[in-house]
């Protein structure tokens, strides 16, 4: 069973936000307006934040998404198991089960869970633009990065149809796919031959706020030598 993980090389990441746009379009995350953004209701599963990280004097741009913790504080507190850690290490959301109590959003130390304050909306001309592989979340439920889980399911199907094993390049999340400086590397953390496992063990690797015991599967690589 693979254990999916994402390595983000901060030495390469330019903070360009291409990944942010890719994620929004891939996952049908609605737009904001200046007003909704000022009310703290901007929806984005991935966002670049100025973070204090090892090896930098000042805040550095850091892509922040669900860390897919191996010991996720968010899933523990969910009263309905609407968010849970699946066997492949992806922290999932079951939208039809979520009661919208927002306990998980408050328990997540990374503040990456988002609540649908209102029904998502697109201007009429943009309605056809939604990705049919990803459900649109109704108002009142919580959502977050899924590691583009639908892409995994498609990749599996494709591999099965072609009668082969799932390869490393078959399953690539949307943010990883677009990153211009190739700062994001996605793969199986348990695959000893994969580059992700090697990088995650490397000397530059750190997990953000790992002192909280969350055991994130998003691994950052420090800037500098």
């Amino acid at each position: 069973m693979p254990r999916w993980g994402l390595v983000i090389d901060l030495d390469r990441c330019t903070g360009c936000q291409a990944c942010v746009v890719a994620c929004k379009h891939e996952n049908n995350v609605p737009f904001s307006t200046p007003e909704t953004a000022a009310e703290g209701r901007l929806m984005t599963w991935l966002q670049i934040v100025p973070a204090e990280v090892p090896g930098r004097p000042g805040p550095t741009p850091l892509p922040l998404l669900c860390q897919h913790c191996d010991r996720p504080p968010c899933t523990d507190v969910c009263p309905t198991s609407a968010t849970y850690l699946n066997p492949e290490g992806i922290v999932a959301q079951v939208y039809p089960r979520c009661i919208g109590c927002r306990y998980c959003t408050n328990a997540c130390p990374y503040a990456v869970k988002l609540f649908n304050w209102t029904e998502p909306q697109w201007p009429q001309s943009m309605a056809p633009m939604v990705n049919p592989d990803v459900s649109i979340r109704p108002k009142g439920v919580v959502e977050k990065c899924t590691f583009c889980h639908h892409r995994l399911m498609q990749a599996r199907e494709r591999a099965r149809a072609e009668g082969r094993e799932l390869g490393a390049e078959d399953y690539v999340p949307a943010c990883v796919q677009t990153c211009p400086p190739e700062a994001m590397i996605f793969g199986d953390l348990d695959d000893p031959h994969g580059s992700v496992a090697a990088l995650a063990e490397g000397p530059r690797a750190f997990r953000w706020m790992e002192e909280l015991g969350t055991k994130p599967k998003v691994v950052y690589l420090r800037e500098g030598e």
Partner: peptide, 11 residues
Amino acid sequence: ELLGQPDGAPW
């Protein structure tokens, strides 16, 4: 929406 990020505020 991305304007002003990461340091400022969106929009």
